[in-house]
Amino acid sequence: MQRIYNWLDERLDLSPIWRDIADHEVPEHVNPAHHFSAFVYCFGGLTFFTIVIQILSGMFLTMYYTPDIVNAYNSVKYLQTEVAFGYIVRGMHHWGASVVIVMMFLHMLRVFFTGAYKKPREMNWVVGVLIFAVVLGLGFTGYLLPWDNKAYFATKVGLEIAETVPIVGPYVKSFLAGGDIVGAATLARFFAIHVFFLPGLLLLLLAIHFILIRRQGISGPL
């Protein structure tokens, strides 16, 4: 191991990367083993953990899901009722969506009330708020995909609300719906946005979020 590490380190200068990822000190005030109340500092990590669950369960869901209006509902129903452990994977993705939002909200409240967004961490706060927006977008687009009445009418109402926004509203609506009605084009677009565009953006923002926190370190105790 040591020889492989040395070989790579000589060429790639791994030590600083290793220090940022793993070999840095964690202060006592965020360590729940020392102060139980420090569990509030776990919400960010749990948000990331749930996002990993979402990505993995979502990857497995796409093995069965068919994004067209004829088969979407039936493929979800087949997954839910016939496929071995299908209801567990779908359940993880369904409940995980809510849990991500809860955890992210708690993480945001922790950062806000401990004033951790203050200089020099302003930019990381902005990135975090953008992550929140992206996750809400993932929730909105994912809600349509099972294509039952609940999904359909929630999306229809959501797009009608978007349409009332002055100037850009009608364009946003027809861009998201892919036409005048919520139909086949809408489902295809929501699937693409939910599975490719927003997760890509989310991973990018998460990378920035983590790089910034390693550059700046955790804020000190109150």
Binding site: I69, Q80, W95, G139, D148, Y152, V157
Partner: peptide, 30 residues
């Protein structure tokens, strides 16, 4: 425990755009 005890909801039928009686409801966080 939540996932296993509460299967994700799915309505018994696919979406019917002509259903005028359905009361729409967004997901709880909206």
């Amino acid at each position: 425990a939540l996932v296993i005890s509460h299967p994700a909801p799915l309505e018994p039928h696919a979406a019917d755009p002509n259903d005028t009686t359905y009361t729409p409801m967004p997901d709880w966080y909206f």
